[in-house]
């Protein structure tokens, strides 16, 4: 998978893609001293990697006027709506997808 990921920036260092499509991941809680972009409602919840979107400059660095390089893998993570919203009344098959950078995720072995 990682070999096919497009690289948007010319940097010597390439951050490896850590998660593969179908892998279960958990959104980490407040792990950032800076510009955390994970929506509050998905933190601590588990979902499945739907796709690897590519590598993009780190928004936590861009937010302070830096280059954001090396770029970090970005994933589209698929959550069950009922996982995020316990009182969700619609179909249990409903999903929500959120794009989340690699450093805001951790493997879910549970």
């Amino acid at each position: 998978m990682s070999a096919t990921v497009p690289i948007r920036n010319q940097v010597s260092e390439t951050v490896p893609v850590r998660y593969q499509v179908g892998e279960r991941v958990r959104v980490r809680h407040a792990v950032s001293g800076g510009h955390l972009r994970t929506p509050h409602y998905c933190r601590g919840h588990t979902g499945v990697i739907e796709r690897v979107c590519g590598r993009f400059p780190n928004p936590e660095e861009l937010a302070f006027g830096h280059s954001g390089l090396p770029s970090l893998p970005l994933y589209r993570v698929r959550f069950r709506s009922r996982e995020l919203w316990p009182d969700y009344q619609e179909s249990e098959n409903d999903m929500i997808e959120i794009e989340i950078f690699q450093h805001w995720l951790e493997a879910d072995h549970g």
Binding site: H35, L62, A63, G68
Partner: peptide
């Protein structure tokens, strides 16, 4: 200016 930077300052 930058998109992420302006968001940070707004937030």
């Amino acid at each position: 200016s930058g998109l992420d930077e302006s968001r940070r300052h707004a937030e």
